[in-house]
Structure formats: structure tokens, C-alpha cells
Design a binder for these strands. Structure first.
Lengths: 148, 148
DNA sequence: GGTGAAAGCATCTGGTG
DNA sequence: CACCAGATGCTTTCACC
């Protein structure tokens, strides 16, 4: 992970559809060299994949929320299986503390939110925080600063 | 947003570097037709961008946490400006309720976490939840189900 | 939305330091 | 081992239908 690799990752994080040739032009390298470096980062799982951001709002999801779950005894495991099947859940984290789970969910409206939360009551107690705005959106991963 | 567009979005969300020609082959459409549909979804901001997932762990960030902030009176606005400058913050949401902000942060180690939280004390009270695992990871946005 | 030509790109090969 | 340059097959792009 030298400086050239970080430059490649910077461009790929900003626009993963940028061609290897264009990346090469910007960092002073031939396109086969760029391709080879990308391949190695994929193999090393530094690069986990390439995706497209779809605006939930533009396709009809008017609400975004963070839903926290404090699972009932014995219900965490079944929930961890079930959560994969919910279309509304964009991200789900297992966390330390009194609460076990935080989910980022997209929903059509209040009624949809109500229906979604109703599904969860068998698994535990929930807390819902409506997202008002996305202040920092998928900021790039940057090289670790030495001072830390 | 017909069914063909949703198929294109499905492939692009799974692998944004897939060529238009390959997408076209899979959905029975020519590559110029695919290109035109993608362009229109970009213009309509249905597609917000294309990115690469970089594994924070593989590049030296051993810890992930959700940090919640309850801002002191008058400190929310300055914080909303400041948060954009933190390399550790991957996502930051403004939310409803007692607490104002939830951040997803990546950190080198406990010491780095301590230093990060120390930076926040002037803005408000914090709560930290360490992420144990990422149960659902950037699940695709899917078409809204009619029943909701 | 398809087709076909031209330009551009990815990928493989062989060769250099 | 990382890189470059040239050759080949795909891809993108733009004209036109």
C-alpha cells in the first residue's frame, strides 16, 4: 500500500467506473500497471467491491431511520438470520452495550415504518431515530495518519 | 423506472465496474440502450455515484464504532461544519430525539478512539458503541413493494 | 431502441531495469 | 517484481435508421 495505490483508491472511491487508462493518465502510469495494482488489491481484499449509490428518496423511500434493537433472551441469533431478508435494511451492525443491534433502514412513509417496527417486537425492544439529514455521506477511507 | 432499469441498477449495485455491454447481454438490450438508460438515471439523480468499498480493517483501522452526540446548546451548527474534516467519520447522520448526531467512525485502536472522543467533548455529550460485526453490508436498494 | 463504423479501452504477451 | 509497449479483441460513442 504505497502512495500510488492510495491515489488509485482515491479515484476509485470517488468514481469506480473511471477507466484504468484514465487513472493511469492522472497518476503517471500505464493502464496495465494500474490494472495489475487493482487486481492485487482485490486479491488482498483491500478492495471489497464496487457499487452504485441509488438515491432511496428518488425511488420512493421517503424516510430513513436508525432502528436500535435490544434483543430478548435467546432472540439475537434468530434475528441475525431474519434481518438479512428485510428489504428495508441497508446496513445492520452488531454493537457492544445494552443494545445489540443498530440498523439503517429506508421506508416509504410512517405507515411503512410502523409495519417494519411491528415485525421486530418479537425479537426485542426497539428504539427509532428518524434521519433528518446525511451530513457526511460515505466519506472515503484515507491512509492512516502516523500520529495516531 | 421500469423493470429493465431496476435490473440495470441491480447489476450496477452488485458491481459498478460491469460494462454496459455485459449488462446489456444479461437483460437482452444493446449497449447504447443501456448507456442511455444509465445516463438518464444519473441525470435524474436516481444514480448518485459509483464507489469502491475499501476494507478499513485491511488498511489498518482495527476498530469501528458508532458515536452518538448530544450537542450542547449552540454547538450543533459548529459541529456540523467540523465533522466534515474528520478523516475517521465515514458516515454522519443528523437524527430526531434527545441525541442529535450519529457517526460511523473507523479507528486504529483504543487510543485513537480516546483521542477522537476527546475532540468531541467541546460539542456535547457522547455515547460510544463499538461495532462487533457488520451483519448486513450495504444491501442493495430494491424496488418498493406495492403492499406498503 | 437497434445497427455499424471509428475511437478508446482492457488484457495478454514479451521485454526492460 | 513492477513496469512499459505493442497487438488483439471488447467496449464505448456517435451517426443514422
Amino acid at each position: 500500500m504505497d502512495n500510488q495505490n492510495w491515489k488509485i483508491l482515491k479515484f476509485l472511491q470517488q468514481n469506480s467506473r473511471m477507466s484504468n487508462a484514465e487513472i493511469g493518465r492522472r497518476i503517471g502510469m500505464s493502464s496495465p500497471a494500474v490494472a495489475e495494482r487493482i487486481k492485487k488489491m482485490e486479491d488482498a481484499e483491500v478492495i471489497e467491491g464496487y457499487t452504485t449509490f441509488v438515491s432511496p428518496f428518488e425511488v420512493g423511500y421517503q424516510l430513513k431511520a436508525l432502528v436500535t434493537l435490544r434483543a430478548f433472551m435467546g432472540m439475537l441469533k434468530p434475528f441475525l438470520e431474519k434481518v438479512k431478508t428485510y428489504d428495508e435494511v441497508v446496513n445492520c451492525y452488531r454493537i457492544t452495550g445494552n443494545e445489540n443491534i443498530v440498523m439503517e433502514v429506508v421506508l416509504k412513509n410512517q405507515k411503512h415504518l410502523e409495519a417494519f417496527i411491528d415485525q421486530l417486537i418479537i425479537y426485542g425492544e426497539t428504539k427509532t431515530q428518524i434521519v433528518l439529514s446525511h451530513v457526511v455521506k460515505h466519506s472515503e477511507v484515507k491512509p492512516l495518519n502516523k500520529k495516531h
